[in-house]
Simulated scan of single mutants.
Amino acid sequence: MRQALLIIDVQPCFSPPQWLVEGIRSLIGKLPSVATVERHDETRTPFQRQLGWHPAADDESLIAADRIFIKHGYVPSMDTIDYLEGLSLDRVLVCGLQTETCCLAAGFALFDAGFQPTLQTDLTVGSPLDRSGGLGVRLWEHHFKHTLTMSELRSFLPSS
């Protein structure tokens, strides 16, 4: 199965837990990887005006993915989707921050592009409303069906 890992917004300004960073890093080099970094540009996404907060304007990924794409707002950029399409994948594994918002938005973008989005349930963290990510996992299963855990993923990875 041709698959890649899409890492959503694992960056300093969102203070990801160390277990999440380490878990994602353990997959780097085992399959193609792409990371998004959310940056603030009020002219593109009105975070400050509408929500009263915003991500950093100059953050970097904490994960050394094969490719890193900047995004503004919740959804991965079209450049990210185009790059993934160029890899001729069967599915895209999604992990990272904000299971019920940014990860879910990535799932919709991937689904609309014809991919099989698959959530790595034990490599996501939810928003402050539900840090467990449980709400996001339930929404993901409702909309996209496919989820995996690290132990299930290991059966698809080449042994190291």
Rank of each mutant, 00 (worst) to 15 (best):
R2M: 11
R2A: 13
Q3N: 11
I8R: 06
I8N: 09
D9E: 07
D9Q: 03
Q11R: 01
Q11K: 01
P12V: 07
P12K: 09
P12E: 13
C13T: 12
F14S: 03
F14E: 00
W19R: 09
L20V: 05
E22W: 00
R25M: 03
S26D: 12
L27S: 08
L27G: 10
G29N: 08
K30N: 07
K30G: 12
P32K: 03
V37R: 00
E42Q: 12
R44W: 00
T45Y: 15
T45K: 08
Q50G: 02
L51G: 13
G52L: 06
G52I: 08
G52C: 08
G52F: 07
H54Q: 15
P55R: 01
A56C: 13
D59T: 08
E60Y: 03
S61K: 05
I63E: 02
A64T: 12
A65P: 05
R67H: 13
I70P: 00
K71L: 02
H72A: 04
Y74D: 10
M78H: 11
M78G: 12
D79C: 03
T80R: 01
Y83A: 05
E85L: 15
G86L: 10
L87E: 15
S88F: 10
S88D: 15
D90K: 10
D90N: 14
D90F: 06
R91V: 04
R91F: 10
V92G: 08
V92C: 06
L93D: 07
V94M: 01
G96W: 03
L97N: 05
Q98P: 00
E100I: 11
E100V: 11
C103R: 04
A105L: 08
A106W: 04
G107R: 07
L110C: 07
L110I: 09
Q116M: 07
P117A: 08
L119Y: 06
L119M: 14
Q120R: 02
L123Y: 00
L123K: 01
V125N: 00
V125C: 10
V125R: 14
G126H: 00
P128I: 06
P128D: 09
L129P: 00
L129H: 12
L129A: 15
R131L: 14
S132A: 12
G133K: 01
G134K: 08
L135V: 15
L135K: 10
V137D: 02
W140F: 11
H143V: 04
H143S: 10
F144V: 11
H146S: 15
M150Q: 12
M150E: 08
M150C: 10
E152T: 13
R154A: 14
R154W: 02
F156I: 07
L157E: 02
S160R: 12
S160D: 15
